[in-house]
Write a protein that binds this DNA or RNA. Structure first.
Lengths: 225, 225
DNA sequence: CCCTTTTTCGTCATGATGACGATAAGCTTC
DNA sequence: GAAGCTTATCGTCATCATGACGAAAAAGGG
Protein backbone atom coordinates (compact mmCIF):
# COMPACT_ATOMS: atom_id res chain seq x y z
CA UNK A 1 0.00 0.00 0.00
CA UNK A 2 3.01 2.25 0.20
CA UNK A 3 2.58 2.86 -3.52
CA UNK A 4 -0.70 4.62 -3.00
CA UNK A 5 -1.50 8.02 -1.56
CA UNK A 6 -1.99 8.14 2.19
CA UNK A 7 -5.14 9.73 3.51
CA UNK A 8 -6.38 10.46 6.97
CA UNK A 9 -10.01 9.56 7.58
CA UNK A 10 -12.27 11.28 10.06
CA UNK A 11 -15.81 10.59 11.17
CA UNK A 12 -17.70 13.84 11.70
CA UNK A 13 -21.20 14.14 13.08
CA UNK A 14 -24.21 16.23 12.22
CA UNK A 15 -26.14 15.82 15.47
CA UNK A 16 -29.59 17.37 15.25
CA UNK A 17 -32.25 17.83 17.86
CA UNK A 18 -35.48 19.77 18.24
CA UNK A 19 -36.21 21.99 21.20
CA UNK A 20 -38.46 25.01 21.70
CA UNK A 21 -39.61 24.98 18.09
CA UNK A 22 -36.01 25.26 16.90
CA UNK A 23 -33.75 22.84 15.15
CA UNK A 24 -30.39 22.72 16.86
CA UNK A 25 -27.07 21.20 15.95
CA UNK A 26 -24.31 20.08 18.27
CA UNK A 27 -21.16 22.12 17.67
CA UNK A 28 -17.75 22.19 19.32
CA UNK A 29 -15.37 25.12 19.60
CA UNK A 30 -12.03 23.99 18.30
CA UNK A 31 -9.20 24.11 20.84
CA UNK A 32 -6.40 23.35 18.40
CA UNK A 33 -5.24 24.53 15.01
CA UNK A 34 -6.42 24.75 12.33
CA UNK A 35 -9.52 26.91 12.78
CA UNK A 36 -8.75 27.26 16.49
CA UNK A 37 -11.57 29.04 18.28
CA UNK A 38 -14.04 28.47 15.50
CA UNK A 39 -17.13 26.34 15.67
CA UNK A 40 -17.08 22.98 13.93
CA UNK A 41 -18.96 19.71 13.75
CA UNK A 42 -17.87 17.18 16.38
CA UNK A 43 -15.78 14.33 15.10
CA UNK A 44 -12.35 12.82 15.01
CA UNK A 45 -9.99 10.45 13.33
CA UNK A 46 -10.96 6.87 12.65
CA UNK A 47 -8.71 4.56 14.66
CA UNK A 48 -6.48 1.96 13.01
CA UNK A 49 -8.72 -0.99 13.84
CA UNK A 50 -12.08 0.68 13.84
CA UNK A 51 -14.98 0.47 11.41
CA UNK A 52 -16.45 3.73 10.15
CA UNK A 53 -19.78 3.19 11.89
CA UNK A 54 -17.97 2.33 15.11
CA UNK A 55 -15.92 5.50 14.91
CA UNK A 56 -19.07 7.58 14.45
CA UNK A 57 -20.79 5.84 17.36
CA UNK A 58 -17.73 6.38 19.54
CA UNK A 59 -17.57 10.08 18.71
CA UNK A 60 -21.27 10.43 19.44
CA UNK A 61 -20.81 8.68 22.77
CA UNK A 62 -17.85 10.87 23.68
CA UNK A 63 -19.71 14.08 22.89
CA UNK A 64 -23.12 13.29 24.31
CA UNK A 65 -22.52 10.53 26.83
CA UNK A 66 -25.08 8.39 25.09
CA UNK A 67 -24.82 4.68 25.68
CA UNK A 68 -28.34 3.35 25.22
CA UNK A 69 -29.58 2.89 21.68
CA UNK A 70 -31.67 6.06 21.62
CA UNK A 71 -32.22 8.23 18.61
CA UNK A 72 -30.84 7.41 15.19
CA UNK A 73 -27.42 7.33 13.55
CA UNK A 74 -26.78 6.82 9.84
CA UNK A 75 -24.06 7.54 7.37
CA UNK A 76 -24.60 10.80 5.51
CA UNK A 77 -21.90 11.23 2.85
CA UNK A 78 -18.15 11.53 2.40
CA UNK A 79 -16.16 14.65 1.60
CA UNK A 80 -12.62 14.58 0.26
CA UNK A 81 -11.84 17.63 -1.83
CA UNK A 82 -8.11 18.39 -1.93
CA UNK A 83 -7.38 21.36 0.30
CA UNK A 84 -10.49 21.03 2.45
CA UNK A 85 -8.17 20.46 5.44
CA UNK A 86 -4.96 22.49 5.62
CA UNK A 87 -3.22 19.68 7.49
CA UNK A 88 -3.19 17.44 4.45
CA UNK A 89 -5.33 14.97 2.61
CA UNK A 90 -8.29 14.21 4.84
CA UNK A 91 -11.42 12.35 3.84
CA UNK A 92 -14.35 12.88 6.16
CA UNK A 93 -17.13 10.35 6.41
CA UNK A 94 -20.04 12.35 7.78
CA UNK A 95 -22.80 10.80 9.87
CA UNK A 96 -26.24 12.12 10.69
CA UNK A 97 -27.57 11.67 14.22
CA UNK A 98 -31.11 12.53 15.29
CA UNK A 99 -31.63 12.74 19.03
CA UNK A 100 -34.21 13.86 21.55
CA UNK A 101 -33.14 16.90 23.48
CA UNK A 102 -30.42 16.08 25.98
CA UNK A 103 -28.66 17.90 28.78
CA UNK A 104 -25.65 20.08 28.03
CA UNK A 105 -23.07 18.32 25.88
CA UNK A 106 -19.58 17.42 27.02
CA UNK A 107 -16.56 19.01 25.41
CA UNK A 108 -14.15 16.58 23.80
CA UNK A 109 -10.44 16.42 24.44
CA UNK A 110 -9.39 18.80 21.67
CA UNK A 111 -12.34 21.16 22.03
CA UNK A 112 -12.80 24.18 24.27
CA UNK A 113 -16.51 23.67 24.53
CA UNK A 114 -19.62 22.26 23.02
CA UNK A 115 -23.09 23.68 22.59
CA UNK A 116 -26.46 23.13 21.01
CA UNK A 117 -26.74 25.88 18.42
CA UNK A 118 -29.95 26.93 16.75
CA UNK A 119 -30.06 26.90 12.97
CA UNK A 120 -29.07 28.61 10.81
CA UNK A 121 -25.44 28.74 11.87
CA UNK A 122 -23.28 31.66 10.84
CA UNK A 123 -19.89 30.17 10.05
CA UNK A 124 -18.17 26.86 10.52
CA UNK A 125 -14.66 25.50 10.13
CA UNK A 126 -13.52 23.48 7.11
CA UNK A 127 -16.40 22.65 4.74
CA UNK A 128 -18.66 21.86 7.68
CA UNK A 129 -21.31 24.36 6.59
CA UNK A 130 -21.83 22.28 3.48
CA UNK A 131 -21.91 19.04 5.47
CA UNK A 132 -24.44 20.53 7.89
CA UNK A 133 -26.63 21.70 5.01
CA UNK A 134 -26.55 18.22 3.50
CA UNK A 135 -27.49 16.70 6.86
CA UNK A 136 -30.41 19.05 7.39
CA UNK A 137 -31.71 18.38 3.91
CA UNK A 138 -31.39 14.62 4.48
CA UNK A 139 -33.36 14.94 7.71
CA UNK A 140 -36.08 16.98 6.03
CA UNK A 141 -36.43 14.47 3.24
CA UNK A 142 -36.40 11.44 5.52
CA UNK A 143 -39.30 12.71 7.60
CA UNK A 144 -41.41 12.30 4.50
CA UNK A 145 -41.03 8.60 3.90
CA UNK A 146 -39.64 7.21 7.16
CA UNK A 147 -40.78 7.27 10.78
CA UNK A 148 -37.52 8.92 11.85
CA UNK A 149 -39.26 11.90 13.39
CA UNK A 150 -39.70 9.66 16.42
CA UNK A 151 -35.91 9.73 16.84
CA UNK A 152 -36.26 13.37 17.89
CA UNK A 153 -38.75 12.37 20.61
CA UNK A 154 -38.26 10.70 23.98
CA UNK A 155 -39.26 7.01 24.22
CA UNK A 156 -42.84 8.01 25.03
CA UNK A 157 -44.36 11.05 23.40
CA UNK A 158 -47.63 12.63 22.41
CA UNK A 159 -48.86 13.25 18.91
CA UNK A 160 -48.46 16.97 19.51
CA UNK A 161 -44.79 16.50 20.31
CA UNK A 162 -44.36 14.52 17.13
CA UNK A 163 -46.15 17.19 15.15
CA UNK A 164 -43.92 19.88 16.61
CA UNK A 165 -40.94 17.92 15.31
CA UNK A 166 -42.37 17.93 11.80
CA UNK A 167 -43.30 21.58 11.99
CA UNK A 168 -39.89 22.59 13.25
CA UNK A 169 -37.84 20.53 10.81
CA UNK A 170 -39.97 21.49 7.84
CA UNK A 171 -40.59 25.05 8.95
CA UNK A 172 -44.29 24.73 8.19
CA UNK A 173 -47.53 24.55 10.15
CA UNK A 174 -49.50 21.32 9.99
CA UNK A 175 -53.18 20.88 10.76
CA UNK A 176 -53.39 19.05 14.11
CA UNK A 177 -56.48 17.08 13.10
CA UNK A 178 -55.17 15.87 9.77
CA UNK A 179 -51.79 15.09 11.32
CA UNK A 180 -53.48 13.03 14.00
CA UNK A 181 -55.44 11.08 11.41
CA UNK A 182 -52.35 10.49 9.32
CA UNK A 183 -50.00 9.20 12.01
CA UNK A 184 -52.60 7.03 13.71
CA UNK A 185 -53.69 5.63 10.35
CA UNK A 186 -50.23 4.69 9.07
CA UNK A 187 -49.61 1.11 10.23
CA UNK A 188 -46.50 0.64 12.35
CA UNK A 189 -45.69 4.32 12.71
CA UNK A 190 -46.63 4.79 16.36
CA UNK A 191 -48.19 2.52 18.98
CA UNK A 192 -50.35 3.64 21.90
CA UNK A 193 -48.81 3.12 25.31
CA UNK A 194 -52.21 3.11 27.00
CA UNK A 195 -51.60 5.98 29.35
CA UNK A 196 -52.21 9.67 29.06
CA UNK A 197 -50.27 12.64 30.24
CA UNK A 198 -51.42 16.08 31.28
CA UNK A 199 -49.95 18.87 29.24
CA UNK A 200 -49.49 22.43 30.44
CA UNK A 201 -52.89 23.33 29.07
CA UNK A 202 -55.80 21.62 27.44
CA UNK A 203 -57.00 18.06 27.33
CA UNK A 204 -54.45 15.39 28.33
CA UNK A 205 -52.96 13.52 25.43
CA UNK A 206 -52.36 9.84 24.89
CA UNK A 207 -48.79 8.61 25.02
CA UNK A 208 -47.26 6.70 22.12
CA UNK A 209 -44.01 4.94 21.38
CA UNK A 210 -42.38 4.34 18.02
CA UNK A 211 -43.78 1.45 16.00
CA UNK A 212 -41.97 -1.26 14.02
CA UNK A 213 -42.36 0.34 10.58
CA UNK A 214 -39.18 1.50 8.88
CA UNK A 215 -40.92 3.14 5.95
CA UNK A 216 -44.15 5.10 5.72
CA UNK A 217 -46.65 3.86 3.14
CA UNK A 218 -47.86 6.13 1.82
CA UNK A 219 -45.37 8.84 2.72
CA UNK A 220 -46.23 12.04 4.55
CA UNK A 221 -45.41 14.69 1.99
CA UNK A 222 -44.33 18.21 2.85
CA UNK A 223 -47.00 20.80 2.15
CA UNK A 224 -46.41 22.51 -1.19
CA UNK A 225 -46.23 26.27 -0.60
CA UNK B 1 -0.63 14.05 9.80
CA UNK B 2 2.01 11.43 10.44
CA UNK B 3 0.50 10.95 13.88
CA UNK B 4 -2.69 9.59 12.45
CA UNK B 5 -3.43 6.27 10.80
CA UNK B 6 -2.85 6.16 7.07
CA UNK B 7 -5.62 4.91 4.85
CA UNK B 8 -5.87 4.28 1.17
CA UNK B 9 -9.03 5.57 -0.44
CA UNK B 10 -10.64 4.07 -3.52
CA UNK B 11 -13.61 5.14 -5.59
CA UNK B 12 -15.62 2.13 -6.70
CA UNK B 13 -18.58 2.18 -9.03
CA UNK B 14 -21.93 0.47 -9.13
CA UNK B 15 -22.77 1.04 -12.80
CA UNK B 16 -26.28 -0.09 -13.60
CA UNK B 17 -28.10 -0.29 -16.88
CA UNK B 18 -31.30 -1.84 -18.20
CA UNK B 19 -31.37 -4.02 -21.29
CA UNK B 20 -33.68 -6.78 -22.47
CA UNK B 21 -35.83 -6.54 -19.34
CA UNK B 22 -32.80 -7.22 -17.17
CA UNK B 23 -30.88 -5.05 -14.80
CA UNK B 24 -27.16 -5.34 -15.47
CA UNK B 25 -24.11 -4.20 -13.60
CA UNK B 26 -20.68 -3.44 -15.01
CA UNK B 27 -18.10 -5.82 -13.56
CA UNK B 28 -14.39 -6.31 -14.15
CA UNK B 29 -12.38 -9.48 -13.78
CA UNK B 30 -9.46 -8.71 -11.54
CA UNK B 31 -6.05 -9.18 -13.15
CA UNK B 32 -4.00 -8.71 -9.99
CA UNK B 33 -4.02 -9.95 -6.45
CA UNK B 34 -5.94 -10.00 -4.23
CA UNK B 35 -8.99 -11.80 -5.58
CA UNK B 36 -7.23 -12.29 -8.91
CA UNK B 37 -9.59 -13.81 -11.49
CA UNK B 38 -12.69 -12.90 -9.51
CA UNK B 39 -15.33 -10.43 -10.55
CA UNK B 40 -15.41 -7.07 -8.81
CA UNK B 41 -16.88 -3.62 -9.14
CA UNK B 42 -14.79 -1.28 -11.28
CA UNK B 43 -12.85 1.35 -9.40
CA UNK B 44 -9.46 2.45 -8.30
CA UNK B 45 -7.44 4.58 -5.98
CA UNK B 46 -8.16 8.25 -5.55
CA UNK B 47 -5.19 10.27 -6.78
CA UNK B 48 -3.25 12.64 -4.50
CA UNK B 49 -4.80 15.82 -5.91
CA UNK B 50 -8.20 14.50 -6.89
CA UNK B 51 -11.62 15.09 -5.41
CA UNK B 52 -13.76 12.05 -4.68
CA UNK B 53 -16.36 12.93 -7.31
CA UNK B 54 -13.61 13.52 -9.85
CA UNK B 55 -12.07 10.14 -9.12
CA UNK B 56 -15.41 8.43 -9.63
CA UNK B 57 -16.00 10.32 -12.88
CA UNK B 58 -12.52 9.40 -14.09
CA UNK B 59 -13.03 5.72 -13.31
CA UNK B 60 -16.37 5.78 -15.09
CA UNK B 61 -14.78 7.40 -18.11
CA UNK B 62 -11.95 4.88 -18.16
CA UNK B 63 -14.31 1.92 -18.00
CA UNK B 64 -17.04 3.05 -20.33
CA UNK B 65 -15.42 5.68 -22.54
CA UNK B 66 -18.13 8.13 -21.58
CA UNK B 67 -17.27 11.77 -22.01
CA UNK B 68 -20.61 13.50 -22.57
CA UNK B 69 -22.76 14.17 -19.54
CA UNK B 70 -25.12 11.26 -20.11
CA UNK B 71 -26.77 9.21 -17.42
CA UNK B 72 -26.37 9.94 -13.75
CA UNK B 73 -23.58 9.66 -11.17
CA UNK B 74 -23.99 10.16 -7.45
CA UNK B 75 -22.21 9.17 -4.29
CA UNK B 76 -23.64 6.02 -2.72
CA UNK B 77 -21.90 5.33 0.58
CA UNK B 78 -18.49 4.62 2.12
CA UNK B 79 -17.19 1.31 3.40
CA UNK B 80 -14.20 1.00 5.69
CA UNK B 81 -14.42 -2.08 7.88
CA UNK B 82 -11.00 -3.26 9.05
CA UNK B 83 -9.99 -6.32 7.07
CA UNK B 84 -12.27 -5.67 4.12
CA UNK B 85 -9.14 -5.42 1.94
CA UNK B 86 -6.26 -7.82 2.68
CA UNK B 87 -3.74 -5.24 1.45
CA UNK B 88 -4.36 -2.99 4.42
CA UNK B 89 -6.64 -0.25 5.58
CA UNK B 90 -8.72 0.80 2.59
CA UNK B 91 -11.77 3.01 2.67
CA UNK B 92 -13.95 2.78 -0.42
CA UNK B 93 -16.23 5.60 -1.42
CA UNK B 94 -18.82 3.92 -3.60
CA UNK B 95 -20.66 5.74 -6.37
CA UNK B 96 -23.82 4.80 -8.17
CA UNK B 97 -24.02 5.36 -11.94
CA UNK B 98 -27.17 4.88 -13.99
CA UNK B 99 -26.59 4.67 -17.73
CA UNK B 100 -28.44 3.82 -20.90
CA UNK B 101 -27.18 0.65 -22.47
CA UNK B 102 -23.80 1.11 -24.09
CA UNK B 103 -21.51 -0.98 -26.28
CA UNK B 104 -19.13 -3.45 -24.74
CA UNK B 105 -17.09 -1.96 -21.92
CA UNK B 106 -13.34 -1.48 -21.98
CA UNK B 107 -11.13 -3.36 -19.59
CA UNK B 108 -9.03 -1.19 -17.32
CA UNK B 109 -5.31 -1.48 -16.83
CA UNK B 110 -5.38 -3.91 -13.92
CA UNK B 111 -8.34 -5.94 -15.15
CA UNK B 112 -8.47 -8.91 -17.48
CA UNK B 113 -11.86 -7.99 -18.83
CA UNK B 114 -15.10 -6.22 -18.24
CA UNK B 115 -18.69 -7.25 -18.85
CA UNK B 116 -22.29 -6.27 -18.31
CA UNK B 117 -23.62 -8.93 -15.96
CA UNK B 118 -27.27 -9.59 -15.31
CA UNK B 119 -28.46 -9.49 -11.73
CA UNK B 120 -28.35 -11.27 -9.39
CA UNK B 121 -24.60 -11.82 -9.36
CA UNK B 122 -23.18 -14.95 -7.81
CA UNK B 123 -20.01 -13.84 -6.05
CA UNK B 124 -17.87 -10.74 -5.93
CA UNK B 125 -14.49 -9.78 -4.52
CA UNK B 126 -14.07 -7.86 -1.26
CA UNK B 127 -17.40 -6.66 0.18
CA UNK B 128 -18.60 -5.68 -3.27
CA UNK B 129 -21.72 -7.84 -3.04
CA UNK B 130 -22.90 -5.67 -0.19
CA UNK B 131 -22.03 -2.47 -2.05
CA UNK B 132 -23.89 -3.71 -5.11
CA UNK B 133 -26.94 -4.57 -3.03
CA UNK B 134 -26.91 -1.10 -1.51
CA UNK B 135 -26.65 0.45 -4.96
CA UNK B 136 -29.54 -1.56 -6.34
CA UNK B 137 -31.71 -0.67 -3.38
CA UNK B 138 -30.82 3.00 -3.78
CA UNK B 139 -31.79 2.87 -7.45
CA UNK B 140 -35.10 1.18 -6.66
CA UNK B 141 -35.95 3.77 -4.04
CA UNK B 142 -34.91 6.74 -6.16
CA UNK B 143 -37.21 5.78 -9.01
CA UNK B 144 -40.08 6.49 -6.65
CA UNK B 145 -39.45 10.12 -5.90
CA UNK B 146 -37.02 11.28 -8.59
CA UNK B 147 -37.07 11.30 -12.39
CA UNK B 148 -33.84 9.27 -12.49
CA UNK B 149 -35.39 6.48 -14.53
CA UNK B 150 -34.66 8.71 -17.51
CA UNK B 151 -30.95 8.21 -16.83
CA UNK B 152 -31.40 4.61 -18.00
CA UNK B 153 -32.85 5.84 -21.30
CA UNK B 154 -31.21 7.39 -24.35
CA UNK B 155 -31.68 11.17 -24.78
CA UNK B 156 -34.94 10.58 -26.62
CA UNK B 157 -37.20 7.78 -25.56
CA UNK B 158 -40.79 6.59 -25.60
CA UNK B 159 -43.04 6.17 -22.60
CA UNK B 160 -42.91 2.42 -23.14
CA UNK B 161 -39.13 2.45 -22.84
CA UNK B 162 -39.43 4.42 -19.63
CA UNK B 163 -42.03 2.01 -18.31
CA UNK B 164 -39.80 -0.95 -19.09
CA UNK B 165 -37.12 0.69 -16.95
CA UNK B 166 -39.49 0.90 -14.01
CA UNK B 167 -40.76 -2.63 -14.53
CA UNK B 168 -37.26 -4.05 -14.75
CA UNK B 169 -35.78 -2.20 -11.80
CA UNK B 170 -38.79 -2.87 -9.58
CA UNK B 171 -39.47 -6.35 -10.90
CA UNK B 172 -43.17 -5.57 -11.24
CA UNK B 173 -45.65 -5.04 -14.04
CA UNK B 174 -47.21 -1.61 -14.40
CA UNK B 175 -50.41 -0.76 -16.21
CA UNK B 176 -49.42 1.03 -19.44
CA UNK B 177 -52.40 3.38 -19.35
CA UNK B 178 -52.02 4.48 -15.76
CA UNK B 179 -48.27 4.82 -16.24
CA UNK B 180 -48.85 7.01 -19.28
CA UNK B 181 -51.22 9.23 -17.33
CA UNK B 182 -48.83 9.51 -14.41
CA UNK B 183 -45.66 10.46 -16.27
CA UNK B 184 -47.39 12.88 -18.63
CA UNK B 185 -49.25 14.45 -15.73
CA UNK B 186 -46.23 15.02 -13.48
CA UNK B 187 -44.89 18.48 -14.32
CA UNK B 188 -41.26 18.54 -15.44
CA UNK B 189 -40.81 14.79 -15.58
CA UNK B 190 -40.71 14.37 -19.37
CA UNK B 191 -41.16 16.76 -22.29
CA UNK B 192 -42.48 15.85 -25.73
CA UNK B 193 -39.97 16.14 -28.53
CA UNK B 194 -42.71 16.52 -31.13
CA UNK B 195 -41.77 13.56 -33.28
CA UNK B 196 -42.84 9.96 -33.24
CA UNK B 197 -40.97 6.78 -33.85
CA UNK B 198 -42.13 3.47 -35.23
CA UNK B 199 -41.66 0.57 -32.89
CA UNK B 200 -41.24 -3.02 -33.96
CA UNK B 201 -44.97 -3.50 -33.69
CA UNK B 202 -48.02 -1.46 -32.97
CA UNK B 203 -48.82 2.21 -33.16
CA UNK B 204 -45.82 4.55 -33.32
CA UNK B 205 -45.06 6.30 -30.05
CA UNK B 206 -44.23 9.89 -29.29
CA UNK B 207 -40.67 10.70 -28.35
CA UNK B 208 -39.84 12.46 -25.09
CA UNK B 209 -36.77 13.84 -23.40
CA UNK B 210 -36.13 14.30 -19.71
CA UNK B 211 -37.70 17.38 -18.16
CA UNK B 212 -36.25 19.86 -15.68
CA UNK B 213 -37.82 18.38 -12.52
CA UNK B 214 -35.43 16.88 -10.00
CA UNK B 215 -38.12 15.51 -7.72
CA UNK B 216 -41.49 13.94 -8.48
CA UNK B 217 -44.47 15.51 -6.72
CA UNK B 218 -46.29 13.41 -5.86
CA UNK B 219 -43.95 10.42 -6.04
CA UNK B 220 -44.61 7.30 -8.10
CA UNK B 221 -44.88 4.62 -5.46
CA UNK B 222 -44.01 0.99 -6.04
CA UNK B 223 -47.04 -1.27 -6.20
CA UNK B 224 -47.63 -2.98 -2.85
CA UNK B 225 -47.69 -6.75 -3.43
C1' DC C 1 -70.07 27.62 36.00
C1' DC C 2 -68.20 29.56 32.01
C1' DC C 3 -64.17 30.28 29.24
C1' DT C 4 -59.90 28.79 27.15
C1' DT C 5 -56.95 25.33 25.44
C1' DT C 6 -55.75 21.06 23.45
C1' DT C 7 -57.05 16.46 22.02
C1' DT C 8 -59.74 13.56 19.36
C1' DC C 9 -63.39 12.25 16.19
C1' DG C 10 -66.28 13.43 11.88
C1' DT C 11 -67.70 15.56 7.46
C1' DC C 12 -67.12 17.05 2.94
C1' DA C 13 -64.95 18.35 -1.40
C1' DT C 14 -60.95 17.52 -4.09
C1' DG C 15 -57.14 15.09 -6.08
C1' DA C 16 -54.51 10.81 -7.01
C1' DT C 17 -54.76 6.09 -8.08
C1' DG C 18 -56.06 1.19 -9.64
C1' DA C 19 -58.91 -1.36 -12.82
C1' DC C 20 -60.31 -1.46 -17.22
C1' DG C 21 -63.11 -0.04 -21.68
C1' DA C 22 -62.51 2.16 -26.11
C1' DT C 23 -60.28 4.36 -29.93
C1' DA C 24 -56.11 5.48 -32.83
C1' DA C 25 -52.43 4.22 -35.74
C1' DG C 26 -49.18 1.53 -37.35
C1' DC C 27 -47.95 -3.36 -39.14
C1' DT C 28 -48.73 -8.30 -41.24
C1' DT C 29 -51.55 -11.52 -43.59
C1' DC C 30 -54.86 -12.98 -46.57
C1' DG D 1 -57.72 -3.46 -49.66
C1' DA D 2 -59.89 -5.62 -45.70
C1' DA D 3 -59.17 -8.27 -41.53
C1' DG D 4 -56.57 -8.93 -37.67
C1' DC D 5 -52.86 -8.01 -34.43
C1' DT D 6 -50.15 -4.97 -31.56
C1' DT D 7 -49.11 -0.99 -29.11
C1' DA D 8 -50.18 3.99 -27.98
C1' DT D 9 -53.30 7.12 -26.18
C1' DC D 10 -57.52 8.83 -24.20
C1' DG D 11 -61.60 8.21 -20.91
C1' DT D 12 -64.49 6.39 -17.25
C1' DC D 13 -65.45 4.96 -12.73
C1' DA D 14 -64.85 3.48 -7.95
C1' DT D 15 -61.75 3.91 -4.22
C1' DC D 16 -58.43 5.93 -1.32
C1' DA D 17 -55.71 9.81 0.57
C1' DT D 18 -55.72 14.47 1.58
C1' DG D 19 -56.83 19.53 2.82
C1' DA D 20 -60.15 22.44 5.03
C1' DC D 21 -62.84 22.76 8.78
C1' DG D 22 -66.86 21.70 12.37
C1' DA D 23 -67.62 19.81 16.80
C1' DA D 24 -67.43 17.09 21.02
C1' DA D 25 -64.30 15.58 24.88
C1' DA D 26 -61.32 16.57 28.70
C1' DA D 27 -58.53 19.08 31.36
C1' DG D 28 -57.40 23.86 34.16
C1' DG D 29 -58.31 28.89 35.51
C1' DG D 30 -61.17 32.83 36.41
Amino acid sequence: MADYPAFSVTADLVVLTVQDNEMRVLLVRRGIEPYRGQWALPGGFVLPDEDLDAAAARELREETGLTAPVGHLEQLASYGAPGRDPRGRVVTVAYLALLPHLPAPVAGSDAEGAAWTALPVAELAFDHARILADGVERARAKLEYSPLATAFCPPEFTISELREVYETVWGARLDPRNFHRKVTGTPGFIEPVGRSIAAERGRPAQLFRRGPARLLHPPMLRPTP
